[in-house]
Simulated scan of single mutants.
Amino acid sequence: MTSDHSLPLLQPALHEEEEGGGGEPSIARRLTWWQKVLDEEEAKKQVLFSMPMILTNLFYYGILLASVMFAGHLDELDLAGVTLANSWATVTGFAFMTGLSGALETLCGQGFGAKLYRTLGIHLQASCIVSLFFSILISILWFFTEPVLILLHQDTQISKTAALYMKFLIPGIFAYGFLQNILRFLQTQSIVLPLVILSVVPFVIHIGIAYALVHWTVLGFEGAPLAASISLWLSVFMLAIYVTCSKRCKNSWEGISFESFSYIFTNLRLALPSAAMVCLEYWAFEILVLLAGLMKNSETTTSLIAMCVNTETIAYMITYGLSAAARFGSTLVAFVVILLPLMAWFF
């Protein structure tokens, strides 16, 4: 007698019996199929794994979005400039850093599965070196944001405002690269619940920092991106302290090692294709903001399109968190990842 757990989830659909016909599976049969999916122990594990990652991604993205909101409330030109700057920062920096960290999902995942725990820390250091190098290149590009945006036929005043925002956000790109690497390092060890707390705290602190710098100091508009940079570095320090002090990382993190330099090219072979893939996904939406800047009344159109794209990015963070559970292999996660965008589009 075989147990229920040995039965496959995807079974051939039964046709309606004598009186039904028509070749359609019965409602009872469909409900039974979904009941088996939802009752699977693996599905429950994936939900418990993915929900903390959804919250973590939302809170870290909320740091950047909150700064945009604080700066955008000052006046219409600032709103257009900050939304254009946020889109430019995403397509040239944040998306690229997220993609680069994708190499750790493979390298650290293999090391953790093979119980070569020490190699996880080595790969983390190699990835941070790669992120540091590209952060320097990106910071140079961000410093010359104004002429680049004007070259792309954006409004001169909006480009000037966006460039000012970008200059104060430059320290944040270094922190964001390290942040994404540490997140992948911990995710591959199934350490996810502490990440929720470590993302909520800097997000809440960021609200206070941003409000204080924008409204209580002479910085004003410049205070919003500076607050984002400060909060991102605060997030990195909190994660670094956790990795150093947590007993769950004692085998995977043994301190800084020069051995990591020998793994840089190994990391690059996976990081660059991953970065290209993520950037193309982001560019498909963020290019709409640049196109809006070519229209008449660009202050209004740029702001409106950018706010739509930011709303879409929030929805993307949800599915991005769900995708973190995909390494376990899940029919349920695949269904939810497909269903959520369809529901968002419908409503």
Rank of each mutant, 00 (worst) to 15 (best):
L7F: 10
S257K: 13
H73G: 13
A227S: 14
G22Q: 13
L124E: 02
V91P: 00
T145S: 11
C108V: 10
S260L: 05
H206R: 09
S262N: 12
A275P: 01
P341F: 05
F335S: 12
W33C: 13
V218L: 13
V130S: 02
M51P: 01
E40V: 09
G208A: 07
P273V: 14
T83N: 09
V192P: 04
S229C: 09
N57L: 04
L55N: 00
G121N: 06
G293Q: 11
Q11I: 14
V336R: 10
P12A: 15
C249I: 03
M277R: 05
T302H: 02
P25A: 14
A284D: 10
H206T: 08
E17M: 05
V204D: 01
V337E: 08
L137H: 02
I129C: 07
V337D: 05
F49A: 05
T119F: 13
L9H: 09
S229V: 11
G177D: 08
F237I: 15
E299R: 15
M166D: 02
G223W: 07
A325I: 03
F133C: 14
G293L: 11
S26I: 07
D4P: 12
C128A: 10
V91K: 01
T188N: 15
L198D: 03
P8D: 14
D155C: 07
G23D: 08
A13T: 11
I338T: 11
A271V: 12
C108L: 03
L213I: 03
F285Y: 08
L304E: 09
I264D: 06
G20E: 15
F178N: 06
C128I: 14
L268T: 06
M51G: 00
F59K: 00
P273D: 09
A103T: 05
S235E: 01
S274G: 07
P12G: 11
I287M: 07
G81R: 00
V130I: 12
L290A: 05
L84F: 01
A292R: 10
A95E: 02
H123P: 01
R184F: 02
S101Y: 00
I63S: 00
N57G: 10
M317R: 09
R248E: 11
L294S: 09
W142T: 03
H73L: 12
Y320K: 10
G72T: 01
S135K: 00
S26Q: 08
A228T: 14
F261H: 04
T156M: 10
I305S: 05
E222K: 15
T83A: 04
E41M: 13
K44F: 06
Y61K: 10
F335M: 13
C128S: 11
Y242W: 04
T145A: 13
P52T: 05
M97W: 00
S257V: 05
P171H: 05
K36D: 14
Y316V: 06
I264E: 07
P171R: 11
